[in-house]
Design a protein around this nucleic acid. Sequence first.
DNA 1: GTGACCACCTGGCCGC
DNA 2: TGCGGCCAGGTGGTCA
Length: 276
Amino acid sequence: MPELPEVETVKETLKRNILGKTIKNVEVFYEPIVEYPSVEEFKKKLEGQTINDLSRRGKWIEFILDDYILLSHLRMEGKYYYRKVGDKKEKHQHVFFNFTDGISLRYVDVRKFGKMWLTTKEELDSIKPIKELGLEPWDEKLTVSYLKEKYKDKKIPIKTCILDQGIITGIGNIYADEILFLSNIDPFKIPKDLKKGELQGIIDNTRKVLENAIKKGGTTIRSYTSEEGVTGLFQNDLFVHQREGEKCLTCGSIIVKTKINGRGTYYCPKCQKVKK
DNA sequence: GTGACCACCTGGCCGC
DNA sequence: TGCGGCCAGGTGGTCA
């Protein structure tokens, strides 16, 4: 599932492959993927635009074009493939960006959850997907006092708060479990009850886990790959996620799986002092 | 304003 | 072998 490290890997791969290319035309085969503007406008505005740079905000990839910024969210299983213009459309390929040099960048999404949004540089910070994002994990404004303020009225489990993109952006279900394990925090704990040291642990381990995952090219679970044939290696470094019934690598207790707010949650009852 | 729940969507897996 | 049901999960919408 693409979280920040996977999105970062995809962005870097795209950067190596499509920087400087000019879009000849765009084909959309599953219209709900284009969130804004209309599909016709989306296709028209992208024609003739050159990809000048790529960046990332949270889990959104930003394609920096001449006059616009194309935002792409991979959601659950989105990915990009490279083909030649005119190559047969394969299953689950929903949007084609055909370049003037004959290369066709294809957005592939088995579950069709991904979203694209076309905006301008001026409007970028005020549009819905971006304006509600919280801090990047490496933002210097991410401090214990920031988390204390954000968590002060929260009555929901810390696991749910860590997934809140409006507080820290980029963390998904896999890394939330890993961050809480490394911080020795009970995922059911109510955030306002967390001590300073525990909040600092969340900040430090968020950075540590994500940095390590980026170095390893992300996590390959189920169908995620950054591109064809490229798989991440961070799944080999997971302490708890998808390890139900296995021994904790730290204390030897059995890893437990439960659900918190509908999300599969893995934890070590001993290391994370879970009272349930 | 907050939290719980559901829909979106498809493939994989499991039990019968 | 085939079928039905459940599960996976990021995000936005709806409702209490």
